[in-house]
């Protein structure tokens, strides 16, 4: 009897472990592990990495005095953003109820720009992406550390639902490609886990720096789906979920990717 009981407990424990073990039981791997050696070398060399141009452009903008107020981001944060805490940068996107929930790094930058009287720019304007790249680069090497408890827990669940929904004529979900098939080839391209730690990243395919939301929009277009708008709740939820999968991975901004 005791033996039966024990094996029953063991079995149910095992079952529980299997069914509750998140998909993340699959170890998170950076996109870096899936790209070609030549692309890695390009990323690792600051002089070769085309994304560094965006970092430099961001640095310029960071120090640019606004006409209306004569102020610059650097007034508060230091010319090289040395007064910013890389660990806080690694927490993005963050939760802030007063700012409508999920706040991306770019949105925080926009709030600051607003405070110093800068001209309002639309989401993902190249200047904002350059600033985002520069600021995120300050946390290079930090581990992604998105909040997963509290109000974020429900939002991450919502994001995961979207991640697992089929979209577009291709009629696949994000998780089909990025959770089931990493390491497989789609045409000439090796599929990665679709992690967010490299973003903003330089895309060799289109020759541009793109942030995570833009990359997700590009995947939706590839799926022949209608991409979610830059300011939509869906894109924020997807971005948050993707970033939460990347927790623990080193920030590589600006990564170089296909």
């Amino acid at each position: 009897m005791i033996v039966i009981k024990r094996s029953f407990i063991l079995l149910s424990g095992l079952l529980l472990a299997i069914t509750t073990c998140p998909l993340l039981a699959e170890e998170a791997k950076s996109g870096y592990e899936y790209i070609k050696p030549a692309t890695r070398a390009m990323q690792d060399d600051d002089f070769e990495n085309p994304g560094m141009l965006s970092v430099e452009r961001g640095l310029e903008l960071f120090n640019e005095k606004q006409d209306s107020t004569g102020k610059a981001c650097s007034d508060c944060h230091g010319a090289d953003a040395q007064k910013m805490n890389p660990q806080s940068i690694a927490r993005y996107p963050v939760y802030d109820e007063n700012r409508g929930g999920i706040v991306t790094l770019q949105k925080s930058i926009s709030y600051c720009r607003n405070n110093i009287g800068s001209r309002a720019l639309p989401t993902n304007h190249p200047d904002l992406v350059a600033l985002e790249t520069f600021v995120r680069n300050r946390a290079h090497g930090e581990a992604v550390n998105v909040q997963v408890d509290g109000p974020m827990a429900t939002l991450i669940d919502k994001g995961e639902k979207i991640y697992q929904t089929r979209f577009g004529l291709i009629d696949m979900s994000c998780s089909h490609c990025h959770s089931l098939y990493p390491g497989q080839m789609i045409r000439g391209q090796k599929i990665s886990q679709g992690q967010g730690n490299g973003f903003p990243a330089y895309r060799l395919d289109i020759g541009e720096i793109t942030n995570l939301h833009q990359r997700i929009q590009q995947c939706l277009t590839l799926m022949r789906a209608e991409p979610f708008d830059a300011d939509s709740e869906e894109i924020k939820l997807l971005g948050l979920y993707v970033m939460s999968r990347s927790n623990g991975l080193s920030i590589e901004t600006p990564a170089v990717r296909y």
Partner: peptide, 25 residues
Amino acid sequence: SIMPGFYRDPRLINRPGKPYRGKTF
């Protein structure tokens, strides 16, 4: 299956891109 249905009923496609609305693959 994850393979697209190349003549799937277009009404079953979730959020098709604008150019593809009401079309089969």
